[in-house]
């Protein structure tokens, strides 16, 4: 199993947000995670990627056979975990080019490879930019600075394409995108998709899942996965909302 999360509990400032979550992801799979606002989806992503301030009070996160709890964020990234941020961060003064080159070389160094030659790097930048249909000279601009909402999301997928992770977590990459941009994001994902890697797609909308077809759909509620199913579950949620899930959950937890 690529990722195996066992009875995970995560607290922020002493408040428990994730309350015993189990999730297994194999290579080649796409898992969608849905669920009402504020139920812990981004928190889960933060815990997997090693963000500080997210305290793992219980449980284990296994990635490629190692328990990664306590591993620094950059090492997880270099092991192949990528997060497309729900809110990408603007970093004035750091150019996209420099940022990507530093990231790519950090990854290569981690894997015992030499730095990427400049020519090869620029070619790769160009290629991936085209893949996500970034037409402007985004690359010479500061990271996300002054990017529109849609551009920021495309930029996340661009970075994913550059770094070619084995596990990509997309946190609401579809929100705020027009239909064309949505297709571009989906194209970026589908291009990378292979039998060796996996995706966790956090979304509120079934629409994205028309383009990135998931193998599993999970509903996160109250810090746990309360329901899992196939791609049809997303359709059902779209139609019926979350009330019935909440009712089911409350009924079972009262038992």
């Amino acid at each position: 199993m690529l990722l195996n999360i066992k009875s995970l509990h995560v607290a922020i400032n002493g408040k428990e947000i994730i309350k015993g979550l189990n999730l297994g992801v194999n290579q080649g799979e796409v898992h969608a995670i849905m669920g009402p606002n504020g139920t812990g989806k981004s928190t889960l992503a933060a815990a997997i990627t090693g963000r500080e301030g997210y305290e793992i009070t219980q449980g284990e996160i296994w990635f490629k056979g190692r328990n990664i709890i306590g591993m620094p964020a950059e090492e997880r990234a270099n092991e192949g975990i990528f997060l497309s941020f729900q809110y990408p961060v603007e970093i004035p003064g750091v150019s996209m080019t420099n940022f990507m080159r530093t990231a790519l070389n950090a990854q290569r160094e981690y894997r015992g490879l030499p730095s990427i030659p400049a020519g090869e790097f620029l070619k790769m930048m160009e290629e991936k930019k085209n893949l996500v249909e970034i037409h402007s000279k985004l690359t010479n601009r500061s990271v996300n600075e002054g990017f529109s909402g849609g551009e920021k999301k495309k930029n996340e997928i661009f970075q994913m394409a550059m770094l070619q992770p084995s596990l990509a977590i997309l946190d609401e990459t579809d929100s705020g995108l027009d239909i064309d941009a949505l297709k571009v994001v989906a194209k970026g994902v589908n291009e990378l998709r292979s039998n060796d890697n996996a995706f966790i797609v956090i979304t509120h909308y079934q629409r994205l899942l028309d383009f990135i077809v998931p193998d599993f759909v999970h509903v996160l509620y109250d810090g746990k996965i309360v329901k899992s199913g196939g791609k049809n579950l997303a359709l059902e949620l779209e139609e019926k909302g979350y009330e019935w899930i909440k009712e089911q959950y409350q009924a079972t937890s009262e038992l």
């Binding site: 990627t49 090693g50 963000r51 500080e52 620094p72 964020a73 950059e74 990234a77 270099n78 990528f82 997060l83 941020f85 990408p88 961060v89 603007e90 970093i91 750091v94 940022f99 530093t102 990231a103 950090a106 990854q107 981690y110 990271v143 970075q159 770094l163």
Partner: peptide, 11 residues
């Protein structure tokens, strides 16, 4: 910004 950079593998 620190976390963003580190999440891309930068030490």
């Amino acid at each position: 910004a620190m976390f963003y950079l580190r999440s891309r593998g930068i030490s």
